[in-house]
Simulated assay, not measured.
Amino acid sequence: MPLRLIFMGTPDFAVPTLLELVAHGHEVVAVYTRAPKPGGRRGLQLQPTPVEQEARRLGIPVLTPATLKTPEALAEFRAHNADAAVVVAYGMILPQAVLDAPRYGCFNLHASLLPRWRGAAPINRAIMAGDAESGVMVMKMDVGLDTGDVAMAERLAITDTMTATDLHDALAPLGADLMVRAMGGLERGGLQLTKQSEQGVTYAAKIDKAEARIDWQRPAREVLRHIHGLSPFPGAWCEIVADGEPARIKVLRCEPADGSSAPGEVLDDRLTVACGEGAIRILELQREGKARMKAADFLRGTPLKAGALFS
Score class of each variant (00 low, 15 high):
100 D>Y: 00
171 L>Q: 07
248 R>F: 03
203 Y>R: 14
258 D>W: 07
294 K>S: 07
240 I>F: 03
8 M>L: 03
109 L>P: 08
68 L>S: 09
89 A>N: 13
269 D>I: 06
72 E>A: 15
111 A>Q: 08
141 M>Y: 10
222 E>K: 13
213 R>C: 09
278 G>E: 02
299 L>A: 10
55 A>Y: 03
194 T>E: 03
288 E>P: 04
116 R>G: 08
69 K>N: 13
59 G>V: 15
195 K>A: 12
1 M>W: 04
108 N>W: 08
198 E>D: 07
167 L>G: 00
158 I>N: 01
48 P>K: 12
2 P>Y: 07
103 R>G: 02
245 E>T: 15
197 S>T: 02
121 A>N: 05
68 L>H: 13
209 K>S: 10
50 P>R: 02
233 F>C: 06
222 E>M: 08
21 L>T: 02
24 H>C: 08
145 L>V: 12
190 G>F: 06
9 G>P: 01
177 D>T: 15
29 V>C: 09
50 P>M: 01
5 L>G: 03
241 V>F: 08
113 L>V: 02
59 G>W: 14
44 L>F: 06
255 E>W: 09
108 N>S: 01
34 R>C: 00
111 A>C: 04
2 P>K: 14
18 L>W: 10
181 R>N: 12
81 N>K: 12
161 T>R: 11
294 K>G: 15
55 A>C: 10
26 H>L: 01
53 Q>R: 14
263 P>C: 02
135 G>L: 09
36 P>S: 10
57 R>I: 01
44 L>R: 15
21 L>G: 00
132 A>K: 13
151 A>F: 11
222 E>G: 14
4 R>T: 08
200 G>T: 02
121 A>F: 12
48 P>A: 03
175 G>I: 00
53 Q>L: 15
153 A>V: 13
136 V>T: 13
118 R>G: 02
239 E>F: 14
165 T>W: 02
29 V>S: 04
20 E>N: 06
62 V>G: 05
75 A>F: 02
97 A>N: 09
125 R>W: 05
282 I>C: 07
179 M>N: 15
215 D>E: 11
113 L>C: 04
68 L>I: 01
259 G>C: 07
48 P>D: 12
196 Q>H: 10
204 A>R: 15
146 D>C: 07
26 H>Q: 04
107 F>T: 08
256 P>F: 13
22 V>Q: 09
233 F>D: 12
299 L>N: 10
237 W>C: 02
168 H>F: 11
82 A>G: 06
235 G>W: 10
103 R>A: 10
146 D>V: 07
67 T>H: 08
110 H>S: 04
24 H>S: 07
267 L>W: 04
42 R>V: 05
32 Y>S: 02
297 D>P: 03
290 K>F: 10
132 A>D: 08
102 P>H: 06
291 A>K: 14
192 Q>F: 02
195 K>R: 14
145 L>I: 10
79 A>F: 01
296 A>D: 12
176 A>R: 14
276 G>V: 00
46 L>S: 11
43 G>S: 04
72 E>M: 02
245 E>F: 09
22 V>D: 05
87 V>E: 11
